[in-house]
Design a protein around this nucleic acid. Sequence first.
DNA 1: CGACGGAGTCGAAGCGCTTCGACAAAGTAT
DNA 2: ATACTTTGTCGAAGCGCTTCGACTCCGTCG
Lengths: 337, 337
Amino acid sequence: MVTLAEVAQHAGVSASTVSYVLSGKRSISMGTRQRVEQSIQELGYHPNAGARALASNRSNIIALMVPLRTDMYVPVMMEIAIAVATTARTHGYDVLLLTGEEGPDAVRRVTGSGLADAMILMDVELDDERLPLLRGTDQPSVLIGLPADTSGLTCVDLDFGATGALCVEHLAMLGHRDIAVIGEAPAVYERHTGFAERTLDGLRSRSRELGLRLLHRPCEGGYDAMAVTLARVFDERPDTTGFVVQNESAVEPLLGLLRQQGRAVPEDVSVVAVCPDQVATQASVRLTSVAIPAQEMGRNAVELLVAKLDGRGTDEVVLIAPELTTRASTGPAPAKS
Amino acid sequence: MVTLAEVAQHAGVSASTVSYVLSGKRSISMGTRQRVEQSIQELGYHPNAGARALASNRSNIIALMVPLRTDMYVPVMMEIAIAVATTARTHGYDVLLLTGEEGPDAVRRVTGSGLADAMILMDVELDDERLPLLRGTDQPSVLIGLPADTSGLTCVDLDFGATGALCVEHLAMLGHRDIAVIGEAPAVYERHTGFAERTLDGLRSRSRELGLRLLHRPCEGGYDAMAVTLARVFDERPDTTGFVVQNESAVEPLLGLLRQQGRAVPEDVSVVAVCPDQVATQASVRLTSVAIPAQEMGRNAVELLVAKLDGRGTDEVVLIAPELTTRASTGPAPAKS
DNA sequence: CGACGGAGTCGAAGCGCTTCGACAAAGTAT
DNA sequence: ATACTTTGTCGAAGCGCTTCGACTCCGTCG
């Protein structure tokens, strides 16, 4: 392994000079800089991460805590993770992958050991048990998702409230009066993951404002669960013509079942989904949808974190404005029969 | 931050003793050990990762390189990543998430800087440009996937050859003679990702042995692409009664289109998929499938790596035997019309 | 009964880097 | 010309840990 000292010797300067060339923290003359850079090239020098971390008290690592369960929005999680990793690299950081398994202990371990300089937490619950720890440490962190109390925290998320409102508005504009919401699995609500509830709030309050009738039904993914849910919806509200779906794995079942029942999309029934664009465009009907901007969330989280690490930036909640893309699954409400 | 020295002082022993308590590399008397552990508890001590890495030349970090693209088997990748992370933790390792973006440079950077003790590479191509680097370093590594030349490398993968054979056998046993393979997107083949080709080899050679007629068509995911592909298949081989699908995002389109064409599954047409169980059970017809054992692959990779790091274990190729689960999408071939 | 070996502990020497203060050389203001 | 700042470089002191050799007790063996 090549060390700083060897590079210094090779370039005929002192070790500290090489260090300053690398960090740019003091001015270095052109000639020296070039000689050092040349030596680094020739010797194939890479600074030792451990030594650097020890001396500078900075690991240049960002910890990313992903949820352990893989029952929900997996592609979104993955896309966020990848966006985080690539964005972090552009700022000179690497990413440590932590699973939710260890829970709060992982936070303690990482902050305590100086393994990472900062953390990003995904899938934050409304009243997450890791939050007190984050508030109690001076290590910067960013949450992807919104807990109940955001004081002293930095958060990034899609504005799910506005997302719900947007879906309702779109359907209302097309003349739909009876709207059914196919929600996430009951477990998601029980777990108090904020986004599901916030969407629902948005849907409800905007429906009220617009005088629409809204029926919300949680739903596990898959055909069987969807069949039951759908039957109950039409049973309770036979005039339902608009659907809002917020469960990736319910999308295709819903479309299939509607087709099977002879309800044409979008002629008889309109469907708006909240899902990644990929799902929307690959479904059997190209779906009008509000995209989940995974990349943007990941990128934003890192930018905020880096700002904090650089002493810039403060606690703030960044809500990404939802965008609804009209595709083939929504149309004017059918004339009242 | 609490340091070793403070713990030592608090416990009334020397720093080295504390270190030995932590590592267990020398025997320590019961009394001392307990006193030290007590102090560690009380002070909330966490060893500093950087210092440890510097002194011991071990970071206790495993690097995981995931592919950058998210166009393929994303849930599988995620599941592997999570399995890697959790398994690594049980062995005292953390996981560094690298994206394929940097390519070979990432390998150089990580091995050069001592950031990680070992690497796991996912989505290895047949003639991957990172392989020479791996062979040239003494840092242990494990590949998930199989390159063309495995000499000097340790690899874990599903036995895709046997997987192909298994699919064909299953269909043959049910009396199907004309089989169509809906493959991955053409890009996947062009990229020379081994698994697609190996599956195809398995399918072909077993078909030949069993005297079946096999038609292979690559296919992008989605309904439109699938519609074109399917039309061509039945055009070319009208007697096709068996399908093998190896593209998650083609599964649902295929089922939808078959239904639309009035071909019942499994009465008229049987479908075998190679996909994660979750996809198989959530499809509109519960699919007979060969599972992609993501968890097992991730876990295996880590176990092999840890073995290498401990000086046990050697280069070897671990092929996981495929298992076919019969569900509702396959049945006896219809009587010849 | 003296030599010997194991168990348990300590001190000190690094690991490779960053960073601070010092200092020489050169430029700038008086 | 003097005093002062700026620029570029160096030496040395750590950062917190691991690990090696040394040392002290004991119990044991010949």
